[in-house]
C-alpha cells in the first residue's frame, strides 16, 4: 500500500531524507505540468517547480493536515508564479509564440502520443489551446489549468484559491467562454 502524503510529511519533519525524496518525486510531475501550462516555458516551469518544492520542504512544519497536501502545494506554486511574474515581467502578458513554442517538449515533453499523424494533430490542437490560454488573464488561466489539466474539483479549487464555491464556478464558466472566443479568433473550434 502506498505511503500517504500525510505519512511522508511526518517522516520528513522527523528528518527522514528518503521520505523527502518520495514526496518530491511524487509531486514534481503534477506541479511541473501546472507550472508549464501557467508559464508556457519549460525553463520557467522548471524554476517555478524547484522554487515551490524548496519552499514546501522548508515550511513543511507549518503544513496544516486538515488541508490536502495537493492543495497546499498547488497554492505554493501558484503564489510563487504570481511573485515571479510580478518581479520578472510586471504588467506584461505572456508571449503567445513562446507560450506555444515549447510544446514539443524541450524538457520531458508531452507524453501519451501513439502515432506520428495523431501526434501531429494533437500537437497542433494543443498549441492552439496554449495560444488561446496565453490570451487569458492569470486568474482565468489558472482556474482552467486546475480544473481541466490537474483535475481538481470545484471544492479543491475553492480551498486552494480561498474563494467561495460559487465564485469558482462563475470564474470557470467565464474563463471557458473567454477561451472559446480566443480559440475562435485563432479559427479553431473544438
Amino acid at each position: 500500500m502506498a505511503v500517504t502524503d500525510q505519512e511522508l510529511v511526518e517522516h520528513i519533519v522527523r528528518g527522514d531524507p528518503e521520505a523527502a525524496r518520495l514526496l518530491v518525486e511524487r509531486w514534481s510531475g503534477p506541479l511541473y505540468n501546472f507550472a508549464y501550462r501557467m508559464t508556457g516555458s519549460a525553463e520557467d516551469a522548471r524554476d517555478l517547480v524547484q522554487d515551490s518544492l524548496l519552499k514546501a520542504l522548508r515550511h513543511l512544519g507549518d503544513y496544516d493536515p486538515r488541508w490536502a497536501l495537493s492543495t497546499w502545494l498547488y497554492r505554493i506554486a501558484r503564489n510563487t508564479h504570481i511573485d515571479r511574474r510580478r518581479r520578472l515581467r510586471p504588467a506584461t502578458e505572456l508571449d503567445e509564440e513562446r507560450f506555444a513554442g515549447d510544446e514539443a517538449g524541450e524538457a520531458g515533453g508531452p507524453s501519451g502520443f501513439t502515432s506520428p499523424l495523431r501526434a501531429a494533430l494533437e500537437r497542433e490542437e494543443s498549441e492552439l489551446i496554449q495560444k488561446a490560454l496565453a490570451r487569458l488573464r492569470d486568474n482565468y488561466r489558472e482556474i482552467i489549468v486546475l480544473y481541466h489539466f490537474e483535475a481538481l474539483s470545484y471544492r479543491e479549487i475553492a480551498d486552494l484559491l480561498d474563494i467561495p464555491l460559487g465564485t469558482v464556478m462563475n470564474r470557470l464558466f467565464r474563463a471557458r467562454n473567454m477561451l472559446r472566443e480566443a480559440l475562435a479568433e485563432l479559427e479553431y473550434t473544438p
Binding site: 511541473y32 505540468n33 524538457a107 481541466h148 483535475a151 471557458r176
Partner: peptide, 26 residues
Amino acid sequence: RLSRALSAMPRMEAPPDLADAVLAAW
C-alpha cells in the same frame, strides 16, 4: 467538446533531474 479537448491536452513530464536538483538544494 471544449472540456474534452482541454482534458486531452498532453501532460508535460518533468525533467528527469528535477527531483534530484530540488533535493540537492534542500
